[in-house]
């Protein structure tokens, strides 16, 4: 079955289609796609992975046409952003 592997940076996005056997896991697809060789900064122990916006384990089985995504951590701390916004007296960033 065909699945895609995605790793996105602001200026450059890796999107690779791979053919994996039925019952393959997220890890199989990631290893097969070659993304780890191209982006050595990816550490599968710390970078979370998922399928189409939902977090999954590396050992979860894939469905045909899934997009395996390797995520990067946030830069800001959402709680800190919220605290600062509350200090300013705004309920939302929207005006």
């Amino acid at each position: 079955m065909k699945v895609e592997v995605a790793y996105a940076l602001p200026d450059e996005q890796f999107l690779q289609e791979v053919e994996v056997p039925d019952g393959a896991t997220l890890k199989d697809a990631i290893l097969q796609s070659g993304v780890l060789e191209k982006y050595p900064e990816i550490d599968l122990d710390s970078n979370k992975v998922g399928i189409f916006g939902k977090l999954h384990n590396l050992t979860d089985a894939l469905q045909p046409n899934d997009r395996v995504e390797i995520y990067r951590p946030l830069i800001c701390d959402p709680k800190e952003v919220r605290r600062q916004r509350a200090k300013k007296g705004k309920t939302s960033a929207k005006v």
Binding site: A8, L9, Q13, L15, K48, G53, E69, P78
Partner: peptide
């Protein structure tokens, strides 16, 4: 934004960085 995107062009998950796939 991921839920709003009609063409699945944003890679991201809850509490993870969201990034647009420019080609999509």
């Amino acid at each position: 934004c991921i839920q709003a995107c009609p063409v699945d062009a944003i890679v991201g998950a809850p509490k993870q960085m969201h990034t647009v796939i420019a080609d999509e």
